[in-house]
Nucleic acid binder design. Structure first.
Length: 201
DNA sequence: GGAACGATTGAT
DNA sequence: TCAATCGTTCCT
C-alpha cells in the first residue's frame, strides 16, 4: 500500500494523500484487535478484503485500516501517515492547523484531515467515496524501512511497520530500530527467505 | 451495572 | 510528562 493514494470524496470536498507509513495486523497477532476473537467492532476484519476498518481510539481519534486477508481470515493494514496531495486547504480547515507537515503525519491526524469517521467503516475501497488508487505510484522504486510497530504493548519486536525512507510526512516519534531497508521486492524476498521473521510464526 | 484500557495527540 | 475522552470489552 505504500506509495498508493488514499482519496476521500466528501460533501465538503475532495482530499487525498500518498500513503507513506503503514502497519500490518495479522491473524493470531497479540497486538491485533482480532486476537481475542470476533466482536461487533472487529468483525469486519474477518470480512472481504478491500474494505475499510475504522475505529475510535482513545475516545477521540479514529484509525483507518484496509482489510487485507481473504474472507474468513482476520487481517488489516493500519495507515499511519499520508503525504497530502489534494484538498490541502480543506485538510487545514479540518485540522485547525496550517503547516502541511502536520496535517496527516499520524493515524489520528490523517482521519481528521480526510474527514474519515465511523460512517466510513466498512466502505469498499475499490470504488465509491473512499478509495485507494494507484495514481503516480512510485513505491516500486522507493526505499522502504521496516521497524517495530508504534504504541502497542504486545509483539513490539515484530517487524510489521513500513515507512518510505526519509519521507518528511512520516509520523513523529522516538527513533525505532530499523530491521531492514530495501525496495518492496527486497523486503518481500526477506520475509520469504526467513531473513526477516515474525516471532511466534 | 461497573471498571479498566487503548494501533493518539497536543499542551505543559 | 500528562491530561483529554469515550467506545469496547470483560468482569461481577
Amino acid at each position: 500500500m505504500l506509495g498508493k493514494i488514499l482519496v476521500h470524496k466528501a460533501a465538503a470536498g475532495e482530499t487525498a494523500g500518498r500513503i507513506v507509513e503503514t502497519e500490518a495486523y495479522l491473524e493470531g497477532d497479540p497486538a491485533s484487535h482480532s486476537c481475542r476473537g470476533k466482536t461487533p467492532r472487529n468483525a469486519i476484519m474477518w470480512g472481504r478484503p478491500g474494505r475499510a476498518y475504522v475505529y475510535l481510539n482513545y475516545g477521540m481519534y479514529h484509525c483507518f485500516n484496509a482489510v487485507t486477508e481473504p474472507e474468513g481470515k482476520a487481517g488489516a493494514v493500519l495507515v499511519r501517515a499520508l503525504e497530502p496531495t489534494r484538498g490541502i486547504a480543506l485538510m487545514q480547515k479540518r485540522r485547525h492547523r496550517n503547516d502541511e507537515g502536520n496535517l496527516a503525519n499520524g493515524p489520528g491526524k490523517l482521519t481528521q484531515a480526510l474527514g474519515i469517521g465511523k460512517d466510513e467503516n466498512g466502505a469498499n475501497l475499490t470504488r465509491g467515496k473512499l478509495v485507494i488508487c494507484d495514481e503516480n505510484d512510485r513505491a516500486g522504486e522507493a526505499v522502504i524501512a521496516v521497524t517495530g510497530r508504534i504504541g502497542i504493548s504486545q509483539a513490539n519486536e515484530a517487524p510489521l511497520r513500513f515507512i518510505i525512507e526519509d519521507n518528511p510526512f512520516v509520523s513523529p516519534h522516538r527513533k525505532q530500530e530499523v530491521f531492514l531497508e530495501g525496495t518492496k521486492e527486497q523486503i518481500k524476498t526477506a520475509f520469504e527467505s526467513g531473513r526477516l521473521a515474525i516471532p511466534g510464526r
